[in-house]
């Protein structure tokens, strides 16, 4: 199930998934990747830094995500922590509301396409 159509579908929803994860709590790169893989690695494919970091840069450039650098509680190494901005929270709310409508609409359509 890893052909181009699936890849495109996953690409389109990655922004929303990332915003959703960051909305839960302030988090850092490696934790985001681990969480993504824990939630649905086998469905949407295992996340990699090469996929996630570039999207995070774009979300930051768009003003949806903000960062701060701070020592990690575990060992003191400096990590970049991501959190949502007000604009990010607003965008996520819009995306989730759209997703609900989209899901219902597509489900209805698919049901109507089922052979009797």
């Amino acid at each position: 199930m890893q052909h181009n159509y699936v890849q495109q579908f996953k690409k389109g929803s990655l922004d929303m998934i990332l915003l959703c994860l960051i909305a839960k709590k302030e988090t850092y790169g490696y934790e985001i990747i681990t969480e993504l893989n824990r939630w649905g690695g086998e469905v949407w494919g295992y996340a990699r830094e090469g996929t996630i970091y570039p999207v995070l840069y774009r979300l930051q450039e768009a003003g949806l995500v903000q960062t701060r650098k701070a020592p990690a509680p575990a060992n003191g190494g400096i990590k970049k922590y991501y959190s949502l901005t007000a604009k990010g929270r607003e965008t996520l709310a819009d995306l989730l509301s759209f997703w609900e409508q989209y899901k219902k609409c597509i489900d209805r359509l698919i049901q109507s396409c089922q052979p009797d």
């Binding site: 490696y30 830094e49 970091y53």
Partner: peptide
């Protein structure tokens, strides 16, 4: 500035992975 940030993040990715 962006290059510096990307390389810093990459370094953090290696460090975080090593910690795990």
């Amino acid at each position: 500035a962006h290059t510096k940030e990307v390389l810093r993040d990459l370094d953090e990715a290696f460090e975080s992975a090593a910690q795990h």
